[in-house]
Design a protein around this nucleic acid. Structure first.
Length: 285
DNA sequence: ACATGAGCCTGTGGGC
DNA sequence: TGCCCACAGGCTCATG
């Protein structure tokens, strides 16, 4: 998906454009994404006359709040919001929120890996019971609390794990918000090979990661996120951070570290592509 | 308890 | 032009 910076970009844009508007209706164009929509609860939260209060971000998920309740939206790999047309819908537009001033907000998701979950104690058990309620943990972009991130990284659960460092960085139960791209970018910036077992990552590198991860994410947010293939911001323009990737998507290209003559390599880790510089990021086993 | 891999979907781009 | 394959931002489950 859209990782943390891309989700933050949506949250900022949605909040700026829709907060304060009143709902006219919610329309579903199919019954489910990865899971069935909690339709009854969503129709209540976005009922006619409800006031759209805010859009914010939790980990890699969006939190949409009205005066009635709140819903968490995971964008999966290909989910996105866009200003919808009242008359025609996009091929993969699955939900449309109509406002009483005529504005409309569409949600599209071609791969349908996304999901909507109700954040509401009043929802029917059948609507909150499914497994999508990921327990999110420490927010990776909380730059005001690098101490908190440092504690997570230096905990025995992390430093004692034989899992790869990249795998752990992407574990939303430990750190919320880091995905494939930003895990790899952060590891390059601190000079750690993505396949290094956590037990072999030196303490000083964990401390560097605790500083580097929030800094990287903040920078990416400031650039509107990374546009890889289909990701676009609310109004269709591309994010700008992909031009600042140092390793992601740069297989075969020269390493950008000063005085390094290495070449960026791609390997497969857990079925997903990993990019790194074998000179700057030596593997310790 | 942990690590690994398959599966969920559609679209795109490269090679032939 | 068209076909086939590899691959893509995430997350959950079954299996060893």
């Amino acid at each position: 998906m859209p990782e943390l910076p891309e989700v933050q970009s949506f949250a900022n844009a949605l909040d700026a454009q829709y907060a304060g508007k009143r709902l006219a209706r919610i329309v579903f164009h199919r019954p489910d994404l990865r899971f069935p929509f909690p339709r009854l609860s969503l129709e209540r939260i976005f009922r006619p006359g409800a006031r759209f209060e805010s859009a914010s971000r939790v980990g890699k998920q969006l939190l949409l709040t009205t005066n009635v309740g709140a819903v968490r939206v995971s964008l999966g790999m290909s989910g996105a919001f866009f200003p919808a047309s009242a008359h025609e819908r996009r091929k993969h537009e699955h939900v449309t929120l109509h406002f009483d001033d005529g504005a409309a907000l569409g949600f599209e998701d071609p791969r349908r890996f996304g999901f909507w979950v109700v954040e509401d104690a009043h929802a029917a058990p059948s609507e909150v019971g499914f497994a999508a309620a990921v327990q999110l943990s420490h927010d990776a972009a909380d730059g005001t609390d690098s101490e908190g991130l440092r504690c997570v990284f230096l905990s025995s659960k992390v430093t004692g794990s034989r899992r790869s460092v990249k795998d752990v960085l992407m574990d939303q139960r430990l750190v919320a918000g880091v995905g494939n791209i930003y895990a790899l970018e952060a590891l390059f910036r601190v000079g750690v090979h993505p396949a290094t077992p956590c037990t072999r990552v030196p303490r000083v590198k964990w401390e560097s990661l605790a500083l580097e991860v929030p800094k990287l994410l903040e920078t990416a947010i400031a650039h509107g996120g990374s546009s890889i293939s289909t990701y676009r911001r609310l109004h269709g323009d591309e994010g700008g951070f992909q031009t600042l990737h140092l390793v992601y998507g740069r297989e075969g290209a020269p390493c950008l570290a000063p005085k390094c003559h290495g070449v960026v390599v791609r390997m497969v880790q857990g079925g997903r592509g990993s990019f790194f510089c074998p000179c700057c990021q030596r593997l310790r086993r």
